[in-house]
Design a protein around this nucleic acid. Structure first.
Ligand SMILES: NC(=O)c1ccc[n+]([C@@H]2O[C@H](COP(=O)([O-])OP(=O)(O)OC[C@H]3O[C@@H](n4cnc5c(N)ncnc54)[C@H](O)[C@@H]3O)[C@@H](O)[C@H]2O)c1
Ligand SMILES: NC(=O)c1ccc[n+]([C@@H]2O[C@H](COP(=O)([O-])OP(=O)(O)OC[C@H]3O[C@@H](n4cnc5c(N)ncnc54)[C@H](O)[C@@H]3O)[C@@H](O)[C@H]2O)c1
Lengths: 208, 208
DNA sequence: AATCAGGTGTGAATTTATTAACAAATATAG
DNA sequence: CTATATTTGTTAATAAATTCACACCTGATT
C-alpha cells in the first residue's frame, strides 16, 4: 500500500487506542462521529482516514470495533514484529520502558542501555539494561530496529552517532536537542518543553 | 499581536531552545539557514516564522542570537509569569516536575498533586506535593493557570473534571486517554505510544 | 565608488490537510 | 413493501502550511 501521511498515521494510532478501550467497555460498533468526538475532530476526517486504509464498514451500524482494530493493525503494524531499545535509563527512560512494555503485541521494548554501573546488568521494569558499549552487539543480536533516546543532552549527539552506526532504522528522540541522523533512518523528535510553552502561549492569549 | 498558528508557536519554542544553546557556545549571530538545519526545515520557513514576530535582523550578519531570544520571549512568554502544577506524581509526573522546574524564568512548576499518602506533604524534586482534595484551594491560592496531567488513565476523566472546575486555563495531558474540557480551557494532548507507533510505521515502510 | 557575494523579507504559487456536499446504501417503522 | 431517517464513501471546494522566486539590502573586494 501507499505510504500514508504522518498525520493520518498519528490519528490511526489514536483511533486504535480509543477502539481498544471501547472493546473493554463491551462496545462492538462505533459511528464515525463518535470516534471523531473522542478525538476532537470531525467525522469526515475519521472517514477519510479510514478510507485510506481501504476499509469499508457495513453501512448504518457503524464500524465493527474489533474488525477496525484489526484493519488498523494491518496497516500500522509490522507482521514480523519490531523490537525497540531505550538508551538512557534515567527518570524518563525508566518510566518509558515501563510504560511502553507490552503495549502492543508486536512492538516490544526488549533492551535498554546506560553507563551507570549500578544499572548495567540489572532488569529495570522487566527490561534488561546493558552498557552502551554493547550497543552494536545487542542491537544486532536482538534485531532491534527502533531506538528511544533519553540520555542527558550532553551525550545526545554522541549516542545518536553510535546508534546510527548500529544499523538501526528509526529513532525517537526525547532529548531536548535536535539530532542529525544518516539518510535512511527515520527520526521523530518530541520536546515536552515545547508542548508546555505552547499551552502557556495559548493560555496567555485566551486571557487577552 | 495576532494569535500565531500553533505550528509557528512550536517552532519558535524550538528555535529558542537552539538559540539558548548557541549562546552557551558563545555564538552571537546565526543565519536563517543555520537555524533551519538545526531543525530539519528550510531557511524560508525560519524567516517566515520570524517575520510573524515582526522582527527584522541586521542584514548580512545573520540574526543576533541574544536579541532574537528576547524577541521570541516577548511573543511566547507572559510578562506576569505563569504557574503550572503536575497532577499525578508517579513515574512520569516526577520526572516531568524535575525536568520542567526552572526551565524558563517565567514559567514555573510550583505545585503537584497525588493521592498517595506517602507522597502528599513532601517535597518531590523541589516541588511540594498536595493531596488532590486540595486542588481547588492550591490552584486558586497559587494562581496556577496550567495543569499537567500524569495520573493513571482510570482517574483521568475524573481529575480533568476537577481541574476544569478550578478555573485553570490550560491542560497538558500525557494520559493515554483523550479528554473533554469545558470551553475556554486550552487542551494539548500528547501520547508517546503514538510517537512510537509512528516511528514503527515509517521504519516498516522504509524496509519495504 | 562600483561591483559582487551572500543574506533577508515577502507576494505568489504550490502542496498538503481539512471540510463541505451529496449520492449510494440500508436498517427501521409503518 | 415502501418511505424515512441515518450513516457511509468520495469528489469537489476550501483553508492552512510550505516553498518558490525574486527584489532588495549590506559588507567585502577591487
Ligand atoms: N525527565 C523528564 O521528564 C524529561 C522530559 C522530557 C525530556 N527529557 C529529556 O530526557 C533526557 C533524560 O532525562 P532524565 O530526566 O531521564 O535524565 P536522567 O539524568 O535521570 O537520566 C539520564 C540517564 O542516561 C544515562 N546516561 C548518561 N550518559 C549516557 C550515555 N552516554 N549512554 C547511555 N546512557 C547514558 C545516565 O546514567 C542516566 O541514567 C534529557 O535529555 C532530557 O532533556 C526528560
Ligand atoms: N510512564 C511513562 O513513561 C508514561 C508515558 C506516557 C504517558 N504516560 C501516562 O501517564 C500516566 C501516569 O503514568 P505513570 O507511569 O507515571 O504511572 P504511575 O502509576 O507511576 O503514576 C500515577 C500517579 O498518580 C497518582 N494518582 C492516582 N490516582 C490519582 C488521582 N485521582 N489524583 C491524583 N493522583 C493520582 C498515583 O498515586 C501515582 O503516583 C498514565 O496515564 C500513562 O498513560 C506515562
Amino acid at each position: 500500500m501507499e505510504t500514508l501521511p504522518g498525520k493520518t498515521v498519528e490519528r490511526l494510532s489514536q483511533y486504535r487506542r480509543s477502539l481498544l478501550s471501547c472493546l473493554e467497555n463491551g462496545r462492538d460498533y462505533i459511528f464515525s462521529h463518535d470516534l471523531a468526538n473522542l478525538h476532537h475532530i470531525t467525522a469526515v476526517q475519521v472517514r477519510r482516514d479510514l478510507m485510506l486504509l481501504g476499509y469499508s464498514s457495513v453501512y448504518r451500524k457503524g464500524y465493527p470495533v474489533r474488525k477496525l482494530i484489526e484493519e488498523i493493525g494491518k496497516t500500522l503494524d509490522s507482521s514480523e514484529g519490531q523490537n525497540a531499545a531505550v538508551v538512557g535509563m534515567g527518570n524518563l527512560g525508566t518510566a518509558l520502558a515501563h510504560y511502553l512494555s507490552g503495549i502492543r503485541p508486536n512492538l516490544n521494548v526488549v533492551a535498554s542501555f546506560d553507563i551507570n554501573p549500578a544499572k548495567v546488568g540489572t532488569l529495570i521494569n522487566g527490561v534488561p539494561c546493558h552498557h552502551v558499549t554493547a550497543l552494536q552487539k545487542v542491537i544486532k543480536e536482538q534485531n532491534i530496529s527502533i531506538g528511544i533516546m533519553t540520555v542527558p543532552q550532553d551525550s545526545a549527539i554522541e549516542v545518536a552517532d553510535e546508534l546510527g552506526k548500529t544499523g538501526i532504522k528509526g529513532i525517537l528522540n526525547f532529548t531536548n536537542i535536535s539530532l542529525n541522523v544518516p539518510e535512511g533512518i527515520y527520526l521523530e523528535e518530541y520536546d515536552m518543553i515545547t508542548s508546555l510553552e505552547k499551552v502557556a502561549y495559548f493560555v496567555k492569549k485566551l486571557g487577552e
